[in-house]
């Protein structure tokens, strides 16, 4: 019983964080067709901005939403400075890998200079602990498990039930045709980055509430998000969401039965096998597009 509870809980929790990160990566890929390697830095920056605002005396309930909104602006600015000028160039995918890596490293070192290397922590969403099925868990983690699906559902509703969401899905599928119905393609690109950065920042706030923060805290989640997105298929946002939870459960089960040490090796083993059988990812359809 407690084994199952532990795996279930661990999987839901890790899956939530991975989904939150991966969805932003997928959103940017499907709309603009580039991989954003500063996505992990967005996560870190969101956490540090939240920490700073709390440090300045704001209550968490005010500080966290402000940090998320500030991250939207950061995402927009990053897009306008290192992605937009390159759109239409040949090799844009590779070039943007380099420019976003460079921007990310700049921001990371900026954070190190401003905030120093000492580990920090931000307040939990809800303080305290409880036991479920014989497993001790923090209320913070439970809050994350509950809030994440709500946010992902809201994102899905936005993309599928609003005119602006429709415009984002359209840009993801055909840029010329989007111009020809009068969409502001540049603004939609900015919006995709802004949403992705906000979600990453929120993931950072989630993480900073139960683990010590450092300027490099985003690199491992970025790697995981990439795995999730490759595994789930980059052609939609629902694929990566399912894949995120699947990988969350897989990791939880592995570390329960084989130990934390073996988990990454097993994960990569499964990933490689999957890609040999289905190179487009397990949940992917043939084309690029948001749904």
């Amino acid at each position: 019983m407690s084994a199952l509870a532990e795996i279930l809980f661990g999987g839901l929790f890790q899956g939530s964080l991975y989904a939150m990160m991966a969805v932003g990566l997928a959103l940017v890929w499907t709309t603009i067709g580039v991989f954003n390697f500063s996505h992990g830095v967005f996560m870190m920056l969101g956490a540090y901005i939240a920490w700073q605002l709390v440090e300045l005396g704001l209550p968490a309930a005010v500080a966290f939403p402000i940090a998320v909104v500030v991250m939207a602006g950061v995402g927009w600015i990053l897009q306008a400075s290192v992605v937009r000028p390159l759109i239409g160039r040949p090799n844009i995918v590779l070039v943007v890998v380099i420019t976003t890596l460079a921007a990310g490293s700049l921001i990371e070192n900026g954070a190190l200079t401003i905030w120093g290397p000492r580990s920090k922590q931000i307040p939990a969403l809800i303080a305290g602990n409880t036991t479920i099925g014989g497993v001790g868990v923090s209320l913070h983690q439970i809050a994350i498990i509950v809030i994440t699906p709500l946010i992902l559902a809201a994102l899905w509703m936005f993309l599928n039930r609003t005119r602006l969401g429709l415009a984002l899905r359209a840009v993801a599928q055909n840029e010329d045709a989007s111009h020809l119905v009068g969409l502001n393609v540049t603004a939609l690109y900015g919006l995709a980055f802004a949403i992705a950065a906000s979600l990453a920042g929120l993931a950072g706030i989630f993480m900073g509430g139960y683990r010590f923060m450092s300027p490099v805290m985003g690199s491992d989640p970025l790697l995981k998000a990439l795995i999730v997105v490759v595994f789930g298929g980059i052609s939609s946002i629902s694929g990566p969401i399912f894949a995120a939870y699947l990988i969350g459960f897989f990791e939880a089960a592995c570390s329960y039965y084989f130990g934390l040490y073996w988990t990454p090796a097993l994960l990569f083993g499964v990933l490689i096998l999957t890609l040999m059988v289905r190179p487009e990812g397990i949940f992917a359809s043939r084309s690029r597009g948001l749904a």
Partner: peptide
């Protein structure tokens, strides 16, 4: 109306 009706395949 562009040539080739490629449109938005998944809409």
């Amino acid at each position: 109306v562009p040539q080739g009706n490629r449109l938005f395949p998944d809409l």
